[in-house]
């Protein structure tokens, strides 16, 4: 609003931030290559994700930044740390044919640099990418779908099938992780261990206070995706993170009591089915698969209904998938350490 004139005047600052962020990214990536401590490496990877999220904001990709921060800096980092407790903290000093690796990398890099020679200039508004499909989405999405966030329009409607595929990818990962790490423990073994953080009173109390607002925020993100950055995916990750926080403080077995695993599994599948059945309904109503126009009398209503339902499907699958993946990893810790100790 009032920001606009300032934005133009601050072009120089924007460029400066751009240069600095990219430099930080480069430093992080390079130091990652030289760090032998894997915990430090995880942190660097997380920092890398956060920095790139900041860069995405600078590049106007707010939805992407949101997701990258939640996933790259959040979920991936947690999973990696959990894995490290099982696999050990330090890596071997020895590199694997470093010279061959370096030459492969250099050849690849040179190929890419050659590729940049004929690229349209960075940020140009006459580049082919900006003049073919992008104007359609920007001009028409208001009329076709009538929600402000164009990214949500494209994600949920124009390219809704890609997003369906994305949900299926998450589902596939859940199946993979469960197939690899799930195990059934005999009842007598699941003897209650003290919660890991029982000593940290402050941490426990603060987190307990935090968990409900996090869940609430997840719901806000879920249903606000049409107007601002957010949507089912981000909401799912945020919701899952509240459960993960609970699990970290009060123990895995405690969480498994609070959150019924069979129900979570059914929900993970249900999210995919909800998404898929929106398509089936539009087919039965005479439209093509995932054609939301066929869902209601007026096209706009149909689009809105369709988008809300599929976002719900995305949210449910992503939230339950992340919970399932984390809990399966965390529960494995005991077993792995027993086995290899």
């Amino acid at each position: 609003m009032r920001l606009k004139p300032i934005r133009i005047r601050s072009r120089a600052i924007e460029i400066l931030i751009n240069v600095i962020l990219l430099a930080f990214l480069a430093i992080t990536a390079l130091s990652l290559a030289f760090t032998k401590d894997l915990f430090a490496s995880v942190m660097l990877t997380g920092i890398y994700s956060l920095l790139s999220a900041a860069f995405f904001v600078l590049m106007d990709a707010v939805d992407v930044a949101f997701t990258e921060a939640a996933v790259g800096a959040g979920i991936s980092t947690i999973l990696m740390v959990t894995t490290l407790t099982m696999t050990g903290r330090f890596e071997n000093r020895k590199l694997h044919h470093p010279k061959i690796a370096l030459s492969v990398v250099i050849v690849t890099g040179v190929m890419l640099v050659i590729g940049t020679m004929d690229m349209p200039a960075f940020g140009s508004d006459t580049a082919p990418a900006q003049v073919h499909l992008a104007p359609y989405f920007i001009m028409q999405s208001g009329e076709d779908i009538d929600i402000p966030n164009i990214v949500t329009s494209v994600l949920a409607s124009y390219r809704g099938f890609d997003t369906f595929g994305e949900v299926v990818v998450v589902f596939t990962a859940v199946i993979g992780v469960l197939a690899l790490l799930e195990f059934s423990r005999k009842d007598n073994e699941s003897a209650e261990k003290p919660a890991p953080m029982s000593q940290h009173k402050i941490l426990r109390i603060v987190s307990k206070i935090l968990i409900p607002p996090i869940m609430l925020f997840a719901l806000y993100v879920q249903f606000h995706g049409e107007y601002g950055p957010g949507g089912g995916f981000q909401a799912g990750v945020i919701f899952a993170s509240s459960i993960i926080l609970y699990a970290m403080l009060f123990g895995i077995e405690q969480t498994r009591k609070a959150v019924s695993m069979p129900v979570v599994k059914v929900l993970a599948a249900l999210g995919v089915l909800i998404y898929g059945s929106v398509g089936i309904v539009s087919m039965l109503n005479g439209g093509n698969y995932l054609d939301y126009n066929a869902l209601a009398e007026s096209n706009i209503t149909g689009q809105h209904v369709g988008i809300i339902i599929i976002e719900l499907g995305v949210g449910i699958t992503v939230a339950t998938a992340m919970i399932l993946i984390f809990l399966t990893f965390a529960r494995r810790i005991g077993k792995t350490n027993e086995g290899t100790a």
């Binding site: 890419l112 590729g115 004929d118 580049a127 082919p128 073919h132 499909l133």
Partner: peptide
């Protein structure tokens, strides 16, 4: 996508000839 602005294979086939001599398309 950068050179043609499209992701559809048949749209790509139509639009690639215009830029087929660029190094970017080669890469």
């Amino acid at each position: 996508y950068m050179m043609t602005g499209t992701l559809n294979m048949y749209d790509l086939a139509e639009r690639l000839p215009e830029v087929e001599h660029t190094k970017t398309v080669f890469t």
